[in-house]
């Protein structure tokens, strides 16, 4: 078998905050009504818990993020995607849903450091002070769609894979030494 390659091969930048491209990361888009009963049980069986509106819930090595009233983003180890897709297919066999492997459609970044929030404040029209602790915020970063949440003392940001280079570029610019707010 061949090894999957993330969009930027783990590029890193040290400014007043540290930017790291991470991955490859397993991701599944799951579209389903949140109140469908089999959903919660299937997720639980697969190690996820159903997040509240605009929240991300974390399990042992996986998370479930609320993307819209009928869409979740499941984040998990890359190697576990196939099995989880199968688990969803069987658990939700009788439930109207759509599960798609989007692991390779995304790029993931970590923004770390005491002033990590300043990096996002320069790129996203989001009031970070009012962000709830486990809030997943979908927004734009400069000119592209992005989603981010606070995690492990920093932020995790997800974008589309094709614009990973652009996202790294704007993160570098925003985190450049001397550009602290």
């Amino acid at each position: 078998m061949h090894n999957p390659v993330s969009a930027l091969g783990g590029e890193m930048f040290e400014g007043f905050a540290t930017i790291r491209e991470v991955g490859p990361m397993g991701m599944i888009t799951l579209r389903c009504k949140m109140d469908e009963k089999p959903l919660a049980t299937t997720l639980k069986k697969l190690g996820f818990s159903l997040p509240d509106q605009r929240r991300i819930s974390h399990g042992k090595d996986r998370s479930a993020g609320w993307m819209s009233p009928d869409e979740l983003l499941l984040i998990l180890p890359y190697a576990d995607v196939a099995a989880t897709m199968e688990g969803l297919a069987s658990g939700l066999a009788k439930t109207h849903h759509l599960a798609a492997d989007v692991s390779d459609a995304r790029a993931m970044f970590r923004i770390e450091g005491e002033k990590a929030d300043q990096v996002l404040a320069k790129l996203c029209p989001v009031d970070l002070k009012t962000l709830a602790p486990a809030e997943l915020r979908r927004t734009r970063a400069a000119q592209v769609a992005a989603a981010f949440w606070a995690q492990d003392g920093g932020y995790t940001l997800v974008s589309f894979r094709s614009v990973a280079g652009y996202v790294m570029g704007i993160l570098r610019h925003a985190a450049a030494k001397g550009a602290e707010i």
Partner: peptide
């Protein structure tokens, strides 16, 4: 009304 965000026009 779906996600509750007070969204900026650019979103």
């Amino acid at each position: 009304p779906y996600c509750g965000v007070q969204a900026d026009e650019t979103e």
